[in-house]
Design a binder for these strands. Sequence first.
DNA 1: TCAAAAGTGTTGAGTCTACACCCATGT
DNA 2: ACATGGGTGTAGACTCAACACTTTTGA
Lengths: 269, 269
Amino acid sequence: MDSEKEYLSNYDLGDYDRPSVTADVAAFMVSNEDKTGYRRNPGNKLRLLLVKRGVHPFKDKWALPGGFLRKGETVEECALREIRDETGVLPVSIMYVGVFSEPGRDPRGWVISNAYVSVITEESVKQAGDDASDAQWFSVNFDKCGEEHHLTLSYEDIVLKAVLTEEKPGFGRTKFGIVDSGDIAFDHASVIAAALTALRSKAKDFKTVLDFLPEKFTLTALQKVQETVMDVSLLPANFRRMVSGYVAATDEFVRGDGHRPARLYKRKA
Amino acid sequence: MDSEKEYLSNYDLGDYDRPSVTADVAAFMVSNEDKTGYRRNPGNKLRLLLVKRGVHPFKDKWALPGGFLRKGETVEECALREIRDETGVLPVSIMYVGVFSEPGRDPRGWVISNAYVSVITEESVKQAGDDASDAQWFSVNFDKCGEEHHLTLSYEDIVLKAVLTEEKPGFGRTKFGIVDSGDIAFDHASVIAAALTALRSKAKDFKTVLDFLPEKFTLTALQKVQETVMDVSLLPANFRRMVSGYVAATDEFVRGDGHRPARLYKRKA
DNA sequence: TCAAAAGTGTTGAGTCTACACCCATGT
DNA sequence: ACATGGGTGTAGACTCAACACTTTTGA
C-alpha cells in the first residue's frame, strides 16, 4: 500500500536529533508556625519543596523535584509521579507553568523542562512523614527591589539567595532572567520565580486558596493562607464577605484559644 | 577529576528513550469583510491559518503550521520560525498555550507538541503575499452547544466541523477532548480550541487587542476586533471610555464613509 | 433631508473599602 | 478586667452598563 510505504519511509522519527524532556514541580505548602504570643494566632509561612542533588551536575546543590518523561505517560502524569515519589502524597492541585528550553540550561546536554506548580496541604505532608533528609521544605521570600527580584529560600541554617530580572517577552507572560542563581541548581531559580508568579496570579481565585487547606478550616485560617501566598494584607470584614460564596458553614467550632470560638467552614459543593 | 568522571558516566542522556518535540502555532488574524450595505461599516471575521498536509500521515488533511524543534533554539524560536516560513511575516505577538503529550496523539510515534497562539495583522499578511495555495486563512466559529463545543473552520467551499468536550482538570486550566476531529489532522482540533480559549481570555486586555491592528486605527475598528475575537457585543460609548487609557489620539481622520469622519488613534507609549 | 456612524454626557445600580462596633473567650 | 480574635453593619467612593443626545458626513 502506497500510503503505508510513504508513511514509514518519510517519517522515521529516528532520523532526527531529539531532546530529553523533563517535568519539574514547584510544590508549595503553607505551614502554621509556632505561636509567638501567649494567645496570638500562629503566623503562616509559604514553603517550597527542594531536594538536595546526590549526583553531578550540581551535586549537593538544591533543586526542584523532577525527572525525565517516560514513554506512555503525559507530561502532567510525569510531574505527578515525581512529586508523589518525593513527598509520598498526591497534590491537591497541579497547574502547568510553562516550558524552559533555552540552549545550555542543562550542562548534561539538550534538555527541555516543563514546569508545574503544585499545592499540598500541611496535613498530608505530616501524614506521609519526612523520611528523606535530602528533601526539605524551604520558606519562601520573593520581593521586588527596584528592577531586581530577590528570591530567598531558607531552611534552618541553609539560605539560598537568588537575584533575577524580569523580562517581558511582548505578551502578558513574564520570564525571569538569572543574575545570580544563589546556589540553586540548573535554571531552577528562574523556574521557581515563574511558578510563584503563576501561583500568586491564580491565588486571587478562592478556589485555588482552598486547595491549601484541610477539609474543615476557620475563615481566619483561609485568610492567612491567601495573605501568605499573595504577600498582601486584607481586612477581615471584607475578606469574609468576598469568600462567602465559596464556603459553607458547619456547626462545629474551635475553642480554647483565649477568645471567641471560631466557626469551622468547608468548601461549598 | 572525580566529578567530571561521574558526570560523564552517570548522565549520558543517550541512554534514555527521548520524544520528538514540536511547536505548533495557531495564528489568528481579523479580516475586514466586504461591506454589506451601501454605507455600512465592514463586518469582521476571525481567521486562522491552516496548511494542507502534503504527506502522510493525514495527507491532504488540514493542520496547524508547525515543525520539529531543532538543537540550539528555544521552543518559542521554533514557533516563530515555523510561522515565518508559512506566512512570510513575523507575528506581532506570540503566546504560549500549553503542552500536548497524550500518548498516541501522533501516529508517527512519540511526539509531544508545544502550542502557541499568535496574532498577525491583516496588513502584513497582504504585504507578504499569498504564494502557497496549501496555506489558507479559515474563518473561525467556536460555540458552546449544551455540553458540546462546536469548532467550525471554513474557507470557500471547505468546511471543517469538529466536536469537542470540555474537561476541567482540577485547576483553572481547560482541556478539550475530541469527540469528532472533523477532518482536522492529529489532535489539532483540541489544540485550536485551547489556543482560542487562551486568546479570548487574553483579549480582555486591550494591549492584546491592539496587536491585531495596524499602527493607526479608528476606535470603532478596535472595538470590532475585540468583539470579533471575544464573540461579544459592546456599547460604543462605554468601550471608548474603557480603552481611552491605552490609546493616543492623532490629528488624522478617515473621510468618505457617508458619515462623520472618524479620528485615527495609535497605541499609547 | 436622512441614514449611518462618531463622539459626549448622565444617571442609577451595584461593588468595594475602610472603619465602627459588638460578641465570646481564657487567663 | 482585658486583650484577642470572631463576626456584623454601614457610609462613602468608585465602577460600569445603559441610554439619551449632539455632531458630521455622503448620497
